[in-house]
Design a protein around this nucleic acid. Structure first.
Lengths: 350, 350
DNA sequence: TTGTATGCGTTATCAA
DNA sequence: TTGATAACGCATACAA
C-alpha cells in the first residue's frame, strides 16, 4: 500500500507553502494559474489524496451523504433497491461516501449524531421512508436534507422527483386515444404525494379530452403487489377496458389475477404501470410503464445536497422527465420518428 | 440542535484534565474507578459524543465499515438485498457507520482510497461480489477484510458463513428418509465455495445412507431463477422424485416450470431451496428452505472486522447454523418436541 | 499573490 | 494516578 502523502509533501515538492497548496487544490482563488497547475501536477504525480477526517475536522465537509430508506424497504421494495443501487454508483462517481442509515431504536437521534459526529454532511430521504414517524422529528433538526419524492406537508424542503403527473397523463391519454372507453386506475396510498400526482395525471388526461371522470373507476391501493392481486375482482366489476396502476408492483399483481381469470391483455384490458421495475421480474409481461430515471434522481439529489451544504440556494423542486416504455400490455401507438420507443433492454440474469 | 459538547467541556465539568477524561471514557486504565464513574456520568449528562473525525485523525478508528456487494446485486439479488438490510440494522446497533462501496471505474483504487482517506476501517466482502475481477486486486491491498461466504482460493481471510454442508445434508436426508428414491440437485456455479459445499452435503446425505450417487441427477446451475425455469425439462428427463436447489431463486424457477407442466409438488416431486428468501415473493409456494441467518452473519462479520482492526486474532472461520423451514413442498416429517418447526412467519406486504 | 500561524477535537507521550 | 503538551492533516484568517 502506497505510503500516505500529505498536503505538506505536496507543498514541499511544489516549492510552495501548505496554504498555497491547499488553495490551489481546492480551487480557491488567490493563487497564480501557473502555480495552481504545478501544484495540481505534483499532487497527481505523488498520488496525493486529502485525508477526509482532517478536512472535516478543519471545518470542511465530511464528503459523505446519509441515505434514509426506511426500515425494511431495501429487501422488500424493488423501487427502493433500485434507487439505492443508483445512489451507490452516483455517489462513487461524485467522490462522495454513501452511508446507509437504518431504522434504529431512535433513528432521529442516530442521524443527528451522525451529523454531530462529523460523519455525514446531510441526508437524502426517500419518500418511501416517510411513513416512519421519526422522520418527522428529524426534519426539524435542521440538518441539510434533500427529499427524493415530495413530502406531503413540508414544502420548505428541497425535493427531487420524477414528473409524476404529466407522464401519467401521457400514458392514460394513450389508452384513451387507442380506443379505451373505460380507463380505470389503481392508485397508491393517496396520502403520498406521488400517488396523488399520478391520479391528477389520470384525471387531466380525461378532462383535456372533455371526458367526465367516473369515480367508480378509481381504486385506492397501496403500491403493493398483493393489493393489485387481491382487488382484481373488484376492479373487474367496474367493467374497465384499461387500467393504469400507480406502480409496476400493483400492475404485476393485477396481471397475475387477470391471467388466472383468462382475461387477455391488452385485448380485453390494457394495462400500464409506473417505475419500470417489473423487468427485473423473471418471465413477466413486457409491461407498459413509466421508467423512473433512477440515475438522474440520484445525481440531482447528491448535487443538490452538496449545494445545500455549501450554503448555496438550490431550487426547491427539481423534476425530471421519465422515459415511457411502451410494452406489450397496451395497444400499439404510431411511432413518430421524433420520439422513438425505448428499446426493451430486458435485463440479463446472472 | 444541541450545541456540540466536546471532550474539553466534559473534562472541565468533571474537574479533571482532558487526558484523564479521554482515558476514563475509553476504558483505558490508569484512572481511579471513582473518577471514571464521575466522568462517565458528566459525559452522559451533557450528552457528550466524541467527534469521529477527530478520533480518527488522532490515530483512532473511523468506526465505519465498508460493504462490498458487487455491481448490480442490490437490485437483482434478493440474497444481497437481505444481507444488506441486516448490515444496516446491525451496524447501527453497533454504533458503526456503514458505507456501501459500489463498482466504480476502478473500485480497488476506490476502496484503498477510502481507507487512506480515513473514511473506513476495513471492508466486508460478500461472496456474491467475488465474480468481480477487481476484488482480487483489492484483497492484496492489505486492508482489514472479512468475507461473508468463503473465497475459493484465499484461505488466509477471515470468513463468516452459514453451515452450508450439514444443513444441505439434513434437507436431502429428509427427502431420502421420506421415501424419495431419486433425489436430484441443482447447484450454483461450482466455482463458488457455497455452491460446492451444498453439493457436498447432498453427497454426504447419500453416502451416510450407503446409497450410491447418480451423477446424472446432479445439475450445475448458476443461482438464477431463469436457470431453474429453463432446465426443468432436462431435470425431469432424469426422472427424479425430489430436487434440492442450491437457492430459493432457482427453486422458484423450477416450481414455475413444474406448475406449467402440471407436475404436483410434493406429490410427484419434492422441492427444497436455500436462503429462505422466497417468502418475500407474492403468492409463491411455501418452499422448504434453509434459512440464511442474515442478522447473525452481519453481526459476526462486523464484530470480526472490528477485532481485526484492533489487531486481535479473530478465528479464521466462523460458521453459523441455519434454521430449516419445513414448508409445503416436501413431505411432512415427524415433528419432535425438541426441534419444532420454524413458524411460517410470512412477510407482510406494506 | 503568498506564507505564517492558529485551531478543529481527540488520542498518545511523557513528566510530575 | 494524573495533567500538560505534542501530534494527526488540513483549512483559513491574517499578515506580509
Amino acid at each position: 500500500m502506497a505510503e500516505d502523502v500529505t498536503l505538506g509533501d505536496v507543498a514541499r515538492a511544489s516549492g510552495v507553502s501548505m496554504a498555497a497548496a491547499s488553495r490551489a487544490l481546492n480551487g480557491k482563488d488567490g493563487v497564480r494559474p501557473e502555480v495552481r497547475d504545478r501544484v495540481q501536477l505534483v499532487a497527481d504525480g505523488l498520488g496525493y489524496r486529502p485525508n477526509r477526517a482532517a478536512q472535516n475536522l478543519a471545518g470542511g465537509r465530511a464528503s459523505v451523504v446519509g441515505l434514509l430508506l426506511g426500515s425494511d424497504e431495501i429487501r422488500l421494495d424493488i423501487y427502493a433497491a433500485s434507487l439505492l443501487q443508483s445512489f451507490v454508483n452516483v455517489a462513487d462517481s461524485h467522490d462522495e461516501g454513501l452511508m446507509i442509515i437504518g431504522d434504529s431504536a431512535s433513528p432521529n437521534v442516530a442521524v443527528r449524531n451522525l451529523i454531530r459526529d462529523g460523519l455525514i454532511d446531510g441526508v437524502i430521504i426517500s419518500a418511501v421512508a416517510l411513513g416512519e414517524k421519526w422522520v418527522e422529528e428529524l426534519l426539524d433538526a435542521n440538518v441539510p436534507t434533500v427529499m427524493v419524492g415530495a413530502h406531503p406537508r413540508r414544502s420548505d424542503l428541497c425535493v427531487v422527483d420524477v414528473e409524476n403527473s404529466s407522464s401519467s397523463e401521457t400514458v392514460v391519454g394513450h389508452m384513451l386515444d387507442t380506443g379505451c372507453q373505460r380507463v380505470a386506475t389503481l392508485t397508491g396510498h393517496l396520502s403520498r404525494v406521488d400517488a396523488s400526482l399520478r391520479l391528477d395525471g389520470y384525471r387531466a388526461a380525461h378532462t383535456k379530452r372533455d371526458l367526465t371522470i367516473d369515480d367508480s373507476l378509481i381504486f385506492e391501493g397501496d403500491f403493493s403487489r398483493a393489493a393489485g392481486y387481491e382487488r382484481v375482482d373488484e376492479i373487474l366489476s367496474a367493467n374497465p377496458d384499461a387500467l393504469f396502476c400507480a406502480n409496476d408492483e400493483m400492475a404485476l399483481g393485477v396481471h397475475k389475477g387477470l391471467m388466472e381469470r383468462g382475461v387477455s391483455v391488452p385485448g380485453e384490458i390494457s394495462l400500464a404501470g409506473f417505475d419500470r421495475t417489473s423487468e427485473i421480474e423473471f418471465a413477466g409481461p413486457l409491461l407498459t410503464s413509466i421508467g423512473q430515471p433512477f440515475d438522474q434522481l440520484a445525481t440531482l439529489a447528491i448535487e443538490t445536497l452538496s449545494a445545500l451544504v455549501d450554503n448555496e440556494q438550490p431550487p426547491l423542486e427539481q423534476l425530471v422527465t421519465p422515459e415511457i416504455f411502451w410494452g406489450e400490455t397496451t395497444h400499439p401507438r404510431e411511432p413518430t420518428p421524433m420520439e422513438p420507443n425505448v428499446p426493451p433492454d430486458r435485463l440479463e440474469r446472472k
